[in-house]
């Protein structure tokens, strides 16, 4: 088996190539519109994208790289440009990717279903293609003596024209590496009260994260801070869920935590069936008390 990995970030490339080694004898990494990444695969196919084009439109080049390499399995990073490329590639091959794979076994993969309410195992009937998020494979296991093969960008007939771009500021938050996380939910009715969570986080050496409504409904947090099925999936030693009800869509993002502590006003909140230590009551009482005592 020969795996064809589509990734643009070095961390993801490491993880996906390491994972690809567990299912394939040889690994080809395809990097589009980002610097070539070496030391992780046997070959790195690098496609530079002209300033007026978008990486997503490199699909003709990616298809010819896939054919030239004679790969028979695809693994793609869960980021927007790789998602476009794997979509076009699988469409051209008459197949479809299995997205959100948490475990790959031959042509089969397990994925979350309905935001973690279920686990689905799916089988690829044709060329297996998987979309894999961060943290599924161990990037430190990646090895390779890859040579870089440059491939020209081939524009499609109706190419998208890029007029300009602006780098986004790097979010000052790294949930994946955090030993402790204090997560805020809809139980916070006032943005100013978030300081109580920040104080506790400072005491614990924790990062501050949130559930989806605080990153999407209101803009109290950047989207990198959102923990849950379509956001970050974390597994710190300590997870403090403040004012989070415990919906499945959030809990799948933090189920891997060693200890889960919950504070919620509603004694019937589902979080209390999914935590180690819970307090039924006001955040404004519980958070300062924890900050003072720890």
């Amino acid at each position: 088996m020969k795996a064809f990995v589509i990734a643009e970030n070095e961390g993801a490339a490491r993880e996906l190539c390491a994972g690809a080694r567990t299912v394939a004898d040889s690994v080809v990494l395809c990097v589009v519109g980002a610097p070539a990444i070496t030391g992780v695969a046997d070959v790195c196919v690098h496609i530079d994208v002209p300033a007026g084009n978008i990486a997503d439109d490199a699909y003709l080049s990616v298809k010819s790289a896939f054919d030239a390499q004679g790969a028979d399995c695809i693994i793609a990073e869960n980021a927007l440009r790789p998602l476009s490329l794997v979509g076009r590639l699988t469409a051209a091959l008459g197949t479809a990717a299995i997205a959100g794979a948490t475990e790959i076994n031959g042509t089969q993969a397990s994925t979350m279903y309905f935001g973690g309410n279920g686990v689905r195992t799916a089988n690829a009937e044709a060329i297996p293609a998987f979309i894999v998020g961060s943290g599924v494979f161990d990037g430190s296991a990646a090895t390779g003596t890859d040579t870089v093969e440059e491939l020209a960008f081939q524009a499609p007939a109706n190419a998208v024209i890029k007029q300009g771009e602006e780098a986004l500021p790097k979010a000052d938050i790294n949930l994946a590496a955090a030993d402790a996380i204090v997560a805020c939910g809809r139980g916070f009715s006032d943005e100013a009260d978030l300081q109580l969570a920040r104080d506790l986080a400072a005491k614990l050496g924790a990062e501050v994260g949130c559930s989806r409504p605080l990153a999407e409904g209101v803009d109290w947090f950047p989207k990198e801070a959102y923990i849950g099925v379509s956001g970050a999936v974390v597994s710190p030693k300590t997870y403090v869920a403040c004012g989070i009800s415990g919906q499945m869509q959030h809990m799948v993002g933090c189920n891997g935590s060693e200890v889960v502590i919950a504070v919620n006003k509603d004694k019937n909140a589902p979080i209390f069936k999914q935590c180690d230590y819970g307090f039924v009551g006001d955040l404004k009482e519980a958070l300062p008390a924890l900050t003072a005592a720890l």
């Binding site: 008459g94 089969q108 309410n117 686990v119 689905r120 089988n123 889960v260 999914q274 180690d276 819970g278």
Partner: peptide, 17 residues
């Protein structure tokens, strides 16, 4: 091209509660 093999509830995580 992709078919469902099985669907089930996720395994519950053991917590002290």
């Amino acid at each position: 091209a992709v078919s469902t093999v099985s669907l089930a509830a996720p395994a519950a995580v053991d917590r002290k509660c």
